[in-house]
Simulated scan of single mutants.
Amino acid sequence: MSWIVSRWSAGMPTRDGATGRREPAVMASLPSGPEVVHVGMDTSMREIVCGVLRPGMDVPAVERIPNDEESVRRLIGKLGSRHLLAVCYEAGPSGYELHRLIMSMGVACQVIAPSLVPKGGSERVKTGRRDAVRLTLGLRAGILTPVRVPAPAEEAVRDLVRARGDLLDDRKRMQQRLNAFLLRHGRIWSGGRKWTIAHRLWVDRQQFAEDALQEALDAYRAGLEAREAELRAAEARLSAWAGREPLAPAVARLSGYRGIAELTALTLASEVVDWHRFPAARAFMGFTGLIPSEYSSGSRTRRGSITKAGPEGVRTALTESAWAYQHRPAIGAGLRRRQAGLSPETLARSWKAQQRLHATYKKMTARGKPHGVVITAVARELAGFVWAEMTS
């Protein structure tokens, strides 16, 4: 399988997302020819169901093996010449260690996007055997869509970024529990947004006459403080990685855009890594899950809420960054510091993004669109700008 990556030298992509020059991307390396043995693996925690399709066969033979290194090596060893093997399995919670093991043995292996595996509309039975057969036949037919497997160093930083995301979720849960506790006992905040400095001071002043209630409040406060301390420590560790290889160059360029500070840039860089795998800005927007869902038939077109496909961290980072574009274009002290040393082309694209995205915000709010809808639209356009930046 091969694909073409569209690069764009500067500016925002047109509506078809295909402006600018085109250069070929890296080719996938699965063997081809009538002698190839195709293997599809349905993986689980304890076993792997393997479909093996040898030359001349129409129906794969199915074999079950334990999910351990010795069993995988034994299976590969009895399938013949390794340079004539093509193996695949679906991406899942088991990660990429199986892929790295198979590749280390000199066998071509792909990790397949599960949501893009063709399935019959009337199928109501799902078993490991059926999945293995479907993967094997799809691999030979060339109709499966592989995902990019990150290098171990890239995956390590990404997992650290996701650990911070989990800590953010934990802090939010503790805040919700503390809010619910105070609400149950008639302590209602009416001073505007919650968890501002003023709200936090108000929470700290709350006291109860009943000893048990006071102890419960103290427990909630201590839990929140613990989550905040853990989050600060995680962010300090992440800041150190923002300036290290392999993601430091990407973080520096992304940080040159308004609203994308260091940790946000590191989130985007670690989750995406290879920006050239997206042939156009529209494809990257689809990856972020910021495009509207659609159900159209004949002359009728129906669009709904955004798809929310792809990594949640990327979508959240772009949406939070999009709020910065509600303000008029300007180069503040923080942005000026982050832009120091960047190329003139990056600075020009960053400024163009400010102008265009602020104009989008003003136009949509003037038409009475809800703020959530407006920010989602701005985040979608921002995705196009960062894709253009990282592929130029």
Rank of each mutant, 00 (worst) to 15 (best):
I76E: 05
L178T: 05
L357C: 09
H83D: 05
G298L: 06
E69V: 12
K119W: 15
G332Y: 08
T316W: 02
S270C: 04
R221T: 03
G259H: 03
I291W: 12
P370V: 04
R200W: 12
S392P: 11
G304T: 11
M285C: 12
R162E: 04
T145V: 13
L382N: 01
R130C: 01
M41Q: 04
R129T: 04
M27V: 10
D16T: 14
I291M: 15
R237C: 07
L116G: 11
A108W: 09
W275D: 00
R300S: 13
H276P: 00
A280N: 12
E235I: 09
I331L: 12
V273G: 03
R205C: 14
A248W: 07
F208T: 15
G106K: 05
K308D: 00
A163Q: 06
M390F: 09
I102H: 03
W241L: 02
L238Q: 05
V386C: 07
S343M: 11
A141G: 13
G223K: 02
R232F: 12
L254E: 01
G304S: 11
R162V: 02
G40S: 04
L318T: 00
G128C: 05
E312Y: 08
R367D: 09
Y89H: 11
A269Y: 07
W275K: 01
V62I: 11
A113K: 09
G138V: 05
A212V: 14
